[in-house]
Amino acid sequence: MADAQGPYSQKVMEHFLNPKNMGEITDASGIGEVGNPSCGDVMRLYLKINDDGIIEDAKFMTFGCGAAIASSSMVTEMIKGKTVEEALKVTNETVAEALGGLPPAKIHCSVLAQQAIEAAIKDYKEKKGIK
């Protein structure tokens, strides 16, 4: 088909159609779940963090549009192998940039991804008793 990707970049469509790290981690070290009340999107991020504070595995489950799913997939790829502190430096801008840009109305999806990391790491620290 001439144009199967609609308003999104090639990268967004790749991650939407073949998302990386989709699913659940049953023994996750931290789980972050964030939602956007304006559109109903919900992103749940599972992290498996080892004793050295390195994110060994990251998975997501997301209810939402193409941009929300692609942002979830991209963010799991970006934080895997990183330390917790490094992961917290991932911003919505870097997620959107890695996706080849998002339409202005969909920037909030990449914001959701950043907030999901923060929520999951907060959950991990609480469980671990880290301040």
Binding site: M22, E33, P37, V42, M61, F63, I69, Q115
Partner: peptide, 22 residues
């Protein structure tokens, strides 16, 4: 398969969500 709502539904969980302020 990628929906947290569906996962909760089949597992019988009540979703716990952090609402994000705009």
């Amino acid at each position: 398969q990628m929906s947290p709502f569906y996962l909760d539904k089949i597992k019988g969980h009540t979703p716990k969500m952090t609402k994000v302020d705009k």
